[in-house]
Each structure stands twice: as structure tokens, then as C-alpha cells.
Amino acid sequence: MDNPPCIECGLCREVCPIFEVLRREHISPRGLAILAEEGIASPVFYQCTLCRACRTLCPVDHDPDGERLRARLVARGVETEANREMIANIRQHGNPFGPLEEGEIPKRLTCC
């Protein structure tokens, strides 16, 4: 099924955990939808947690589709260092943290 386009109503702002902290429109789900529509390749897409809380409130059921957007960014060479390291760790060590001894608790959390 087609993903209904964002109608920019802004209802998603108040359920987004990233917006709740930063309170900047460009990282709100509406902001990211506008940037995606404009074809902007920006590292800000990595700030989305991919939690889809926005979708629970979205009146048109727009999906932020963060995974596909990030895949496109990676293909264009737009990637954060943290994301690059996390993916490399998963490929090399089978986890996002890097080399770990048996039972060792990760000391560093890589994320986007």
C-alpha cells in the first residue's frame, strides 16, 4: 500500500521523544517529512529513533519510513560516524558495541 503523504498538521510533534527534548521543528516527524519531500540529504534523519510513536497519532497514518530514508542516505554517502561504527561493529562482531569478552557489559553505546 502507498504511504499517505504527510499533511503537515503537526500533531506528531508532541509524541516524538526527540522533539520533546530538543523542541526544534526540523527533527520533528513533520519536519523530517518536509525535508524528505524536498529531497534534502541530511544527517538529521539519523536523529529519529525509528520508534514510530508519531504514527500512533498521525491522522492520515503516514509512516516516517526512517529505515528507507537512511538506506538512501548511506547510498549517497551521507552517514554519521556513530552509524558507520555501529554498522561495522554489527558486521564484524555481531553486536553494535564492538569487541566484547564473554559476559562483559558494554562500556560505550554507539547510536545514530
Binding site: 499533511i7 498538521c9 503537526g10 526540523h26 520533528s28 519536519g31 525535508l35 534534502i40 541530511s42
Partner: peptide
């Protein structure tokens, strides 16, 4: 004055588009 901020703040829920020079908080 980032391109990301200037684009998203150039419009509101009316979906009208203007020109944003900068954003301040």
C-alpha cells in the same frame, strides 16, 4: 541558518510556503 531549519520553518500547517532567513529560539 541551516538549510534544514530554513526549509521547515518556511511553512506551517497551512502548507503555504514563504522564505525563512534564519530561526531563533
Amino acid at each position: 541558518t541551516s538549510i534544514e531549519d530554513r526549509l521547515v520553518y518556511a511553512r506551517d500547517a497551512s502548507r503555504m510556503r514563504g522564505e525563512c532567513l534564519a530561526v531563533v529560539w
